[in-house]
Design a protein around this nucleic acid. Structure first.
Lengths: 195, 195, 195, 195
DNA sequence: CATGAATGAGTCTTCATTCAT
DNA sequence: CATGAATGAAGACTCATTCAT
């Protein structure tokens, strides 16, 4: 049977994730990706406009699906803001379970994207917006400490999770996913204090 | 000396921090640094072995001082672990007040360093160790929630602060430093929950 | 392939021989070689690891073939040591007839190779060994003056030939090859001969 | 006591000979020479126009003295051409006895000089001329084999000696100078002699 | 579509030389 | 004269991208 069309494009994407995760975007060579994907260098340029385009597509790949799920979470009227926030964070973590390298790429390269002239995919910004909405809902319902600045909180949470994610991606055995998730919940809800 | 009485080595370091902050290490050109420092390209190589060496020195510059201060904090027997942690975090933030670009470089490039073959300066690892010790002290004295995994907590805090730092560095006016600091304290101690 | 059907690797080698012969290794620029070979600079690095690698390959090109021929000469049981030495020297000279620039490169750059960290090709050392063996055979058969130190003789001969070779390569018309060869024979035979 | 004037110029020259001998002209750095001479880099440029100028002066230093002696040899009417040639070669070898590194520089760098735009010192060309005159005298007096082409002979001898010189400079113990000299005499006399 | 040899613009780095002190 | 920090021109090498096959 002839190899299914479309596989090659995906193969390249996954190979790139692996290579970028290992060496970082700038230190990764297109030829390495072609080797990892078992594809010729030329083929990469059939499916992607440039090396940078691959990175862009990786982020679309990451955020499009997350945004899709987040939309469903916020629309669910049966859940409280606190439950929603929990689900929101759950989906985020789950995105990486089957692809830890994606976490590394996210952590290492997203900032580079944000700095450069390249916009991140729209879905990323929409995803963040949903996150803020969930927290705002909680604020309105007095579920959260009113002293806490929402923006600061959001950045703190994202940064904290991002960093943990990286640690987990590199040390999957040392830190079981469930423990990770539980602790994040604890810290967010109650901080570290022994109330 | 042929020109300038200033500290050329320091000028170059500061110029590099600015340029790296703006474009990222890999997109920064040595010639840009030389222009920013108002120094010839050749002069850079009088004081630094290579472009990478400059980055190394930036991290020494960052962590050596922090480690020095952290040592004093932990040695102070008159303070409780909670006070120590607060001071510890204070000094960290203060490191960047007079040099916000250093925060950007720290946030963007430290991971690249950790990935590559280059070790970070020893002071960095020692600094982290002190941080862990302070938390451990607090744990022993039952000041912290025993359910929280220290390692997870450490990574979470560092990541959260790191991310906030970056936001602050890019939007100093939007987010007053004092507000930033106060919120971090709140979140760490009490989480977001409205107890 | 995108252009040319010729052997680009060989073209580059020959171009490099010409350029090195004219300017010397250190004064030769890779860009000059690329021009001489009518090839882009990048192409040179497709076939050779570095400028130095080209020089290495030139010496392999020179000595591999010579060694091959020398092996046949020494194995020939029908010839006397004196005949063998003559043939040995003949093949050496002939190596350069169609490529006088190679003689210049040999004369000028081989010493630099010997001084540096780069080994010459194995074939070179083996070739020399065969030369010594031939002379040793002659010694055993009392064909040569026992007063002459073989090592000194070998160095003398090699140096003498090397120098003549250079003169000839630069002044091919002024000194016919046959005359050159005949004279070398005379000097060697009578210089070393056991009269 | 104040250091004698003029020492510095000579110190630099001797240091340069050592450094050039060890690394070759192109791989030698001016700063290495300054270190070897225990002199500042700037001082070198007080006494020499450029790095190349140092090499030029080395060759003057080598050939001027040799030429001086050669002039006396050829003028001596009491000696036969054969005796003169012997003396001529003696002085050449002796030039290097107290400074083997000079031999290495001569062997390795003189060709580079001959290739480039730089002329060798006049004394060099005059020295060669005297050598040819001595041989011509011998030819006229039928002392040498008329079949031998003088030019070829000259180049052969010079090349042979040059090569031996290098070997000796690098292995002074393995090859006693007297043995070296005796063998050269044997080869030359019998090689060129009219038996 | 697939290939991979060919390309050359773009950078880091070196080091001989200068010149203010 | 002596110094050595400062200079910048020059060159080796890389690698994303192209395109003839």
């Amino acid at each position: 049977m002839r190899k299914k069309e479309g596989n090659k494009e995906r193969d390249i994407l996954e190979a790139a994730i692996k290579v970028f995760a290992k060496y970082g975007y700038h230190e990764s060579k297109v030829s390495q990706i072609s080797k990892e994907a078992e594809v010729s260098v030329g083929s990469i340029y059939v499916y992607y406009k440039s090396k940078e385009d691959i990175l862009n597509k990786i982020f679309s790949f990451l955020w499009d699906k997350l945004y899709e799920k987040a939309e469903k979470i916020i629309a669910d009227e049966t859940k409280s803001p606190i439950e929603k926030l929990n689900l929101f964070i759950d989906t985020f973590f789950e995105r990486f379970v089957s692809m830890p390298e994606l976490a590394i790429v996210y952590v290492n390269e997203q900032r580079h994207m944000e700095m450069g002239k390249n916009l991140l995919p729209l879905s990323y910004y929409k995803y963040l917006e949903i996150g803020e909405q969930i927290i705002s809902e909680g604020m309105k319902k007095k579920l959260y400490n009113p002293e806490v600045n929402v923006k600061v909180f959001r950045f703190f949470i994202i940064g904290g999770i991002r960093n943990l994610l990286e640690f987990w991606a590199k040390n999957q055995i040392a830190l079981p996913f469930t423990e990770l998730r539980k602790n994040v919940g604890l810290i967010i809800e109650r901080g570290i204090g022994n109330h």
